[in-house]
Design a protein around this nucleic acid. Structure first.
Lengths: 228, 228
DNA sequence: TTTTTAATTGGACAATCGTCCAAATTAAAT
DNA sequence: ATTTAATTTGGACGATTGTCCAATTAAAAA
């Protein structure tokens, strides 16, 4: 029994595993495409495998049925969202001030590579079904929780520097408000994609933050003169 | 030809028309119940008529099929939303200051009779499908437009009284920001119904508005000492 | 090359979907 | 009481749904 496992996750460099993973991904992406284009209600196994150009039975083999595939698709979309977000965040450098981190989060979440018709369609389609399906809700929550932790940490640092009464309460309000704003802007984009103005959206959020932390935020984003 | 029209919308007091309307409404409400409970994807003609306790064919007779029924259900939900909202707004009286109107809009939109699990489920379910169905989107837009007009008028008055640069731009930002906040709070409610705090939600929005119009808004809502 | 095993195919299958209509029911008109 | 017309019923219908599996293909091991 030197080298004879039955777990296909061995041999990960093998041609076999490569093809397997390629098809797996193709089906997930086909699912997301269908959801974005047709909505969840009109997305069927038939439409998915037709777009993927693969065979009906594969969805059972890889995902144990349609529900499993949809769950995998949500996980994929959720991970992609954060991969994109963190990639943009890293442009601010590792030694960024907390207010710069906040600005980066806001500008990233409003940037075309994250806030676009495809992502908005997918996200709202899944949210619409989230209430009934625990598996969907958990990924919706994950996105929310990670973003919240990121902001909470930054605002806590800001509160420590700025003179505010009840710092932990203020940090929570700032986090809650920023998240609500970002969510609301996504909805605004969903309803008025053509008229949406990314700059205006950012400016409005900074207006809120400059009211809370006048030493750390101006109308155009983070202020640098005040140390963390 | 004194009194023999074929339009059933005559005879509106007749027993016939009463029963007809009763069943029509029962089917619409059954549809909304199903959507709230099961989501759109799992809401079928069968589940609807079973809940309504009526017969399969009626949905074709009254609404020309499932799509027509769903459209009527959205219209009904949209109207109910505004009926509730306006009912709450009227409590402020007809001679309210603009900042009081804004406060009333915010508090109403966050009140249990409007922001609750049933309404949130329905609204997000329909929004999730809105992108693909024009008939759905139009009602989503309607709600948005009417709310926007209401706020825009109030903020324009406030801008006239308060000293701000570029009043029309500021009024638009305030309207846009308030709407985004309200939308975001609905999403927050959707994702964290148990932890949601209505008072906190209102306070955060007022914080935003007091930053914009310090003479008209405080952390607890509208200020009265400044005339319209 | 031959054997083994993993991956993929494509259709059969029962269940459910939404549509539609002929028949039954019931209120209103005669 | 009888006729007319509006409303409701409940099932037939073909289309489509998601699941599943026996057969096929192709990579890896022997």
């Amino acid at each position: 029994m030197t080298e004879s496992s039955h777990d296909p996750s061995d041999n990960n460099g093998g041609r076999r595993a490569q093809l397997r993973e390629r098809n797996r991904l193709a089906m997930i992406e086909a699912t997301l495409d269908c959801v974005a284009e047709l909505g969840i209600a009109r997305t069927s196994v038939s439409t998915i495998i037709e777009r993927a150009g693969l065979s009906r039975g594969l969805i059972h083999f890889h995902f144990n049925g349609k529900d499993g595939l949809i769950e995998a698709a949500i996980a994929h979309a959720s991970n992609q969202y954060f991969d994109n977000l963190y990639a943009l965040l890293e442009e601010t450098g590792p030694e960024a001030l907390p207010q710069e981190t906040v600005e980066a989060v806001i500008r990233s979440d409003m940037s075309p590579s994250i806030l676009n018709g495809y992502n908005v369609s997918i996200w709202y389609a899944f949210r619409g079904e989230a209430r009934e399906r625990k598996s969907i809700q958990s990924f919706s929550d994950t996105r929310d929780d990670r973003l919240r932790a990121l902001l909470m940490k930054a605002f806590s640092n800001i509160c420590r520097a700025e003179k505010v009464g009840d710092p932990s309460q203020t940090a929570r309000d700032a986090t809650h408000g920023t998240l609500a704003f970002l969510e609301g802007m996504w909805t605004d984009y969903l309803l008025h994609e053509d008229a949406f103005d990314r700059e205006q959206a950012c400016r409005i959020i900074f207006r809120f933050l400059s009211g809370l932390f006048p030493n750390h935020f101006g109308l155009n984003g983070a202020l640098r003169d005040h140390p963390a």
